[in-house]
Design a protein around this nucleic acid. Structure first.
Lengths: 339, 339
RNA sequence: UGACACCCGAUGCC
DNA sequence: GGCATCGGGTGTCA
């Protein structure tokens, strides 16, 4: 998740500056080893607590909406932070949210001291206090740039989720909704579907891939599932998402599938013709990967064609501020953490 | 990891010699994903456990005094062994060795099914069963041609050793021997050297080629240089790397050169005999390219032979998880960037 | 026809 | 930095 990574980096930079010197000094004095001690305090995650490795911390925070964690060089500090915030975060909802849409770093703060730190030195900062996190998120989406939106990570969920149940009467909300509708509006009866795949630790041993299909807000066909099978790769996840999209839509309905995977789209729209001609050999003579999924999709496309329905693909840039892509991404990410 | 190396060599020989089979093999691997599973159990190392790649295994055992590790094709076996249990080593420590000195491909097999496959269709095959690998090696050296001996790769070391240290049949010793064979912690007789060539924009106008030679970590003879001359091609870079390796090693030392360039190895081990006979004409009557480099290498090899030293070549798959190949690759890439 | 390299490019997933 | 994947291409030989 680039967005998460960005946010993580921002937090680390932000919080790391305050007490780094003192901590290092202390540690250097008492320890002979040169390596810096690390403690990852997870205050909001699957299992809040203190972890010693980044891997464990990641496991506790990956895909967790609103995950909150921080690195310390002192165990006691980490414990205190995790414990202290834990109480506040888990039961008491903060009463104030400071949205910093333009600043360094952008994000949502619950403490004015931190928020003011983030806008200090920024020319033309944009920030505002809200009483709900959702409003703060929406403010950042409306007034911040793409990076600021991306930095929200899973929090964008709040804005998407509430779309249907919110009376969008402010200017910002209205225009945002209009933009979304514009993106999704299509000539007549073509169903727009967003697909995405995710694969944590892609290419490594414990990779877990997830599939996301998004038809629209609150649509019952929206899908979030774990990729089946032993090959947990990003490509298989992306292809499978497209497969599911075709399966979920009515057989006789034309669809337009939005995917950020150029690989997947080209597999089923251009490359497959050459592959068939060469007996599923790649241009370099190697056997085509993920042939099973490609063939399934081709079958589904042929079926639709017979029904008189069209299947269109549109590539969308990943991690742009495309709401549909973000929604599908979120579904895929959540699917990856399923059993 | 003796089994791994042996297996890889067998596959390489297989693919290199019989094109039809090689293609099928590839296809099969691709389709039903029956590729041999590998698990590296580390019983004594920095972090004991089971690892999936040789690179990870190396990381856990490198520099660890008394490191103890072993390769398995079954995860459960690997886990059991890592946990200290004695695993019935059926396929990991073979009790029989089938030497195929004349066949297609030649080599040492531990399974009669494979061995019989290698001699099927070959007129006048030469093969024999042994109870030690060393005997099998000696048989091939005695009854096979040069190519067959070369195909033995590092296993020729077994024959170079004195008869006294035979029967290295326990798991521990097999492991240790594997390390000697494959990670080139040589037994003093043969210096293992990795070579590689790089050529950015190969075949285009502004191509820049580099040469890499790797003797070992921190070895002062490691070389990274820009390819000299106006012809900046990958092939010249690969050949030059071999040339440099021979120049850098002591004149009277036997060496084993690991290269991923089948072209280079065949140039100096098989094709050159025909070229000499035809007056350096290719089989199609064209003049042989890179003759200057090939002749230089042949001269260096002849010189070593006169000194009583052996020069052996072993092909290694490029971009695989071979640490030596990766190291040489980096040196070559670096060299290509030089002035 | 085959084989092994050496690249150039593209999009994701980390 | 790496993997997942594909498309173009040259360097060279049998």
């Amino acid at each position: 998740m680039p967005a998460m990574a960005r946010k993580r980096r921002a937090e680390a930079a932000h919080e790391g500056s305050s007490s780094a010197d003192a901590g290092q000094d202390t540690k250097k004095r008492k320890t002979d080893k040169t390596e810096e001690a690390k403690f990852y305090a997870v205050r909001a995650g699957h299992v809040p607590g203190v972890y010693k490795t980044w891997a464990e911390c990641t496991k506790q925070t990956w895909g967790f909406k609103g995950a909150h964690y921080k690195k310390f060089s002192s165990l006691s500090d980490a414990k205190a932070w995790a414990a202290g915030k834990h109480v506040a975060a888990s039961k008491d909802t903060p009463s104030k949210y400071y949205a910093v849409a333009v600043g360094e770093p952008t994000g949502i703060y619950t403490d004015w001291a931190e928020a003011s730190e983030a806008i200090k030195g920024t020319k033309g900062p944009k920030y505002k206090k809200f009483f709900t996190k959702q409003e703060a998120v929406e403010y950042i989406i409306a007034h911040g740039n793409k990076a600021a939106t991306d930095a929200l990570g899973a929090d964008v969920n709040l804005a998407l989720k509430s779309e249907s149940e919110t009376n969008a009467n402010t200017e910002e909300e209205t225009s945002a909704q209009a933009k979304r509708d514009d993106t999704l509006t299509h000539n007549g009866d073509v169903i727009p579907i967003y697909t995405d795949g995710a694969s944590s630790s892609n290419g490594k041993v414990g990779a877990r891939a997830g599939v996301g299909v998004w038809f629209g807000n609150g649509d019952e066909r929206n899908l979030s599932e774990r990729l089946q099978g032993p090959l947990q790769t990003n490509q298989r996840a992306e292809l499978t998402a497209i497969q599911r999209a075709l399966e979920l839509a009515p057989r006789d309905a034309s669809v337009q599938i939005f995917s950020d995977s150029a690989y997947s789209i080209k597999c089923v729209t251009e490359w497959s013709v050459g592959w068939k001609a060469r007996g599923w050999q790649t241009s370099k003579g190697e056997s085509v990967k993920n042939r099973d999924l490609v063939e399934k999709i081709l079958d589904l496309m042929a079926d639709k064609r017979e029904m008189g329905a069209l299947v269109m693909f549109k590539w969308v840039k990943g991690h742009a501020s495309d709401p549909g892509n973000i929604a599908a991404d979120r579904l895929a990410t959540q699917g990856a953490k399923m059993a």
